[in-house]
């Protein structure tokens, strides 16, 4: 699972700090494993946007639905993303896998 957030100009560092301090603990409790955090460009910008890319993993599709059931019922999660949207230019969440896993994932 990949979150890609284009922060408002100058807001990247604080947004990432809040993401890790306020969002990540709950995400871990929902079964998500934090794999990687990337910042582009690799310098904090105070008058332009940093793009934050945060990659998580989940054990399988069942774990994904378990996470989804909990987050979907938690109004604090929706409120968090509303706040992020106010502090970001854009964002995207996508779900990806290695190409060699596609056939297995689709064989359900």
């Amino acid at each position: 699972m990949i979150d890609e957030i284009v922060a408002a100009p100058g807001a990247g560092r604080a947004l990432l700090d809040d993401y890790l301090a306020r969002y990540a603990p709950g995400a871990r409790a929902r079964g998500m494993v934090l794999e990687q955090v990337l910042v582009a460009p690799p310098v904090w910008l105070d008058d332009q946007s940093n793009t934050l890319t945060i990659r998580w993993s989940l054990a399988n599709a069942g774990a994904w639905w378990g996470m989804r059931a909990v987050s979907g019922a938690d109004s604090a999660v929706a409120a968090w993303w509303a706040e992020v949207d106010a502090r970001a230019i854009s964002r995207r969440r996508s779900f990806a896998t290695a190409p060699e896993a596609i056939v297995r994932l689709c064989d359900v």
């Binding site: 989804r68 987050s71 979907g72 999660v77 929706a78 993303w81 949207d85 854009s90 969440r93 990806a96």
Partner: peptide
């Protein structure tokens, strides 16, 4: 991984 983003409060 695709359709649910229309339903998921975490997805824009």
């Amino acid at each position: 991984a695709h359709i649910d983003r229309w339903f998921d409060p975490e997805c824009p």
